[in-house]
Amino acid sequence: MEPILKLESARLLMRQWRDDDLPAFAAMCADPQVQRYFPATLSRLESAALIGRLRGHFAELGFGLWALERKVDGQFIGYTGLGVVDFEAPFSPAVEIGWRLAREHWGYGYASEAAWTALGCGFERLGLEQIVSFTSVSNQPSQKVMQAIGMQNDPADNFEHPKLPDGHPLKPHVLYRINRQQWLKTLQA
């Protein structure tokens, strides 16, 4: 499949990663507030390695986490996109939708706008039947985005993240899902 390297929404360009994204991306990943629902902040080297893995996902699967750029000024603001769940869980194999934005871009609806665009790509262009999203139980901001794009949580689906050690405060996770039919209904609403 030809990689999907670019998507657009009203205010955002979702594009392939560029080398000049690294300074802003590394600053975002080093921000303790941005990373508070992740196990740790990332160094510049770890951020560069993550960009490499994100590029590799596109090369291998044709989709991934797109770099987010504001159309009005071309500023890098974070990422949003789709990825294959890389651990075993009751809901895997699955494709996950995820996002992370620099703190100064919170509260403008960018995450929901980009996530809605990524859902459309997943269902229309990739032909997926279901997309999941998950986060720590304490991450209310991401759960609000999941709800805003029509995803639903069944408490019976919640799980302990297998990549985190027992007792870690982020180990308890919620799982949200949306299937193609639910997504089509939200389009018609």
Rank of each mutant, 00 (worst) to 15 (best):
V137K: 10
L187D: 01
W106R: 01
M28R: 06
D31T: 10
V72G: 00
A27K: 09
E96C: 09
Y108A: 12
R70I: 07
V145C: 09
E46M: 09
L119S: 03
E60V: 13
E104Y: 01
W116T: 10
K6W: 07
E113T: 09
A189W: 06
N153I: 06
L5N: 00
L175F: 10
G52Y: 05
Q147E: 15
E96K: 10
F25D: 04
P93N: 10
R177C: 10
S112C: 11
F87T: 04
H173M: 14
G62H: 09
A26D: 01
G74N: 07
S47Y: 02
F159Y: 13
A10H: 10
Q143H: 13
A114I: 04
E124N: 13
T186A: 06
S9C: 03
I178L: 13
Q130L: 10
I131G: 02
N158M: 09
Q181H: 13
W17F: 07
Q33T: 14
F25K: 05
Y37L: 10
P3R: 08
A24E: 09
V84D: 11
H161Y: 15
A59I: 02
D157Q: 13
L68G: 00
H168E: 05
H105P: 01
D154K: 07
L7K: 08
L170F: 03
L61R: 14
C29H: 08
W66G: 00
A102Q: 01
H57L: 05
A89G: 13
P93D: 12
A59K: 08
K171A: 08
D73G: 01
R55N: 11
W106L: 08
F38R: 08
R70G: 01
P32R: 10
G74R: 08
M1V: 13
F134Y: 15
G150N: 05
N158E: 07
T41W: 07
G98L: 12
G98M: 11
A89S: 14
G109L: 04
F87I: 04
A189F: 03
P93C: 11
D166Y: 03
S92M: 05
A26Q: 06
A115T: 10
S43T: 15
D31G: 07
V174G: 01
M151G: 04
G107F: 10
G120F: 02
F159E: 05
P23W: 06
E104Q: 14
F76W: 12
N179T: 12
E46T: 04
G83I: 04
V95T: 15
P32N: 11
P141V: 12
E160T: 01
G107V: 08
K171L: 09
G56P: 00
C121V: 12
S112Q: 13
G83A: 14
L50G: 01
E104I: 05
K71M: 06
G109M: 03
P90M: 00
E124L: 13
P3G: 09
H105T: 02
E46G: 06
I4Y: 00
D157N: 14
V34P: 00
A156R: 14
Q152T: 15
Y108I: 02
